[in-house]
């Protein structure tokens, strides 16, 4: 348009040009159930448990802001490693449940775990029809361990 002629309401028509341009462009949409979005490695999707590493120290359950981790364990006496040595006790994990209906994904439990038993996995597909099924038990949490990604490389 030449600059001499003043077009009435230029803003209105510029806006319409923009929406038309958007319409003919491809929409930036991930077709979710067919195509899965890949979250970043650090994404806080679901907490996985390495039960081997857990020593039932209860730190995570105590530090959780909304107390959604349930841990039970018992102690067994272990034979001394050398004959004549001291009899040691070992804690055995009986139950480790996380209630994802309560969890607010703050990550404090993962941070405080002194033995590296908890990890974040970016997996996000575990919605349930019944809220009680959101209580993940030890096996379920252990299965998530497979999905834990390698930590990303760092910016030097």
């Amino acid at each position: 348009m030449s600059k001499g002629i003043k077009f009435p309401f230029p803003g209105l028509f510029k806006g319409m040009a923009l929406t038309f341009k958007t319409m003919v462009k491809k929409a930036p949409v991930t077709m979710y159930p067919d195509v899965k979005e890949i979250p970043v490695p650090r994404a806080r999707g679901v907490i996985s448990l390495d039960a081997e590493a857990c020593t039932v120290c209860m730190l995570c359950a105590r530090e959780c802001p909304d107390w959604c981790i349930y841990i039970e364990g018992h102690k067994v006496e272990k034979a001394p490693s050398k004959p004549g040595g001291r009899v040691r006790t070992e804690s055995i994990l009986d139950r480790f449940d996380i209630d994802y209906g309560l969890c607010m994904y703050c990550g404090i439990c993962v941070d405080v775990c002194p033995f590296d038993a908890l990890f974040w996995s970016p997996e996000y597909e575990y919605s349930e029809m019944k809220i009680s099924n959101l209580l993940h038990n030890q096996e379920r949490l252990g299965e998530w361990l497979k999905t834990v990604p390698e930590p990303p490389a760092l910016e030097s």
Binding site: R42, A53, V112, P114, F115, D116, P151, A153
Partner: peptide, 18 residues
Amino acid sequence: YGGGSKTKKQSMDLPAGF
């Protein structure tokens, strides 16, 4: 992430390419 001293200590510094 995690307080473990043994292994797997994942530094939370800025990721590469940030």
